[in-house]
Structure formats: structure tokens, C-alpha cells
Amino acid sequence: MVTIARRTVLKVIGQLSVFGAFLIQIGGAVRAFIPNVLYEPPKKFKVGKPEDYPEGVNFVPEHRLFTVRSANEFGIISAVCTHLGCTVRWESKVPEFECPCHGSHFRPDGTVISGPAPRPLAWFALSLSPDGYLVVDRSEQVASTYRFSPPAKEKA
């Protein structure tokens, strides 16, 4: 029979409750720094009408991506370097994407030619909104061969 003094039991309970209270408070303070609501731009957004974009590669600054057009086929490639997140530039004369921060070079299909980038540039899925805009879905990555052909306009 193990006997524990009442005083010891009360002392341990007292100490645990003090430290427990501190720990819970610290936990709460830390939790406050993990946001519950994010006021961030949506992952799915319109980038303009198909006819807004000429042939070839066009930069869309407000969304940091390029539209790639060939006749009626559209692709969307990310302008965010896969190395450390700078915006790559389209050098049409070479032609390739080049990063101004650490010198990564990418082929027009997004694969890495040289430099520190560990992965190819991402391609995103495209669709057409009912009112005739191209819609990019950043949450859906696709293969570099993916192209979207908007259906021909029906004349009313």
C-alpha cells in the first residue's frame, strides 16, 4: 500500500494547474497566428477574352502568367520561377523564359534548360466562361501539351 500525503497530492495538483493554465494560454496565443480566414485572390479567375491575345506568348502581369496562343489553341503557363518565386521574363528572340533573380532558363514548354530551377514551370487548366472569357484554374495543374480550344462563337 503506497501512501501519498494529502499535502503532496494537493501540491502536485496546484503546480499542474498553474503550469497547465500557462501552457493553454501560450497555446492560444500561438494559435492566433494561424489565420482562419484568408483574404487572398481566388485560384480561379478570368484573364480576358480569347481574341484579346495575339499569337505567341503574352504576359498577363496582374496574374503573373503567360498565355500561349497558336491559332485557336490556348495554353496558360505560370510566370513564377520554380526556384525561389521571382517572375520570369519571356525572351522571344532566344526563345526562352529567363529568371532575373538567379538565372534559370526554361524552354517554351516550361522545362528547365539551365540554372538552379528544380522543376519546370507550371501549366494551368483553362476553360471558357459563359460570357466568353478565358478562365484559369490555378489549383489544377496540367501537362505542358495541354491546350484549350474555345468553341467557335455562335452568331445570334
Partner: peptide, 19 residues
């Protein structure tokens, strides 16, 4: 900055970023 630009390693099919 120079180090992160120069140290990406390619080991077979694995790539370790300079970052």
C-alpha cells in the same frame, strides 16, 4: 544569392534545389 543560384544538385532523377 550567388550560392542559391549555383548549388542546385541533379542526382539521377532527383533534384535538390539551391534554395
Amino acid at each position: 544569392q550567388e550560392l542559391v543560384a549555383d548549388t542546385t544538385l541533379h542526382l539521377g532523377k532527383y533534384t535538390i534545389s539551391g534554395g
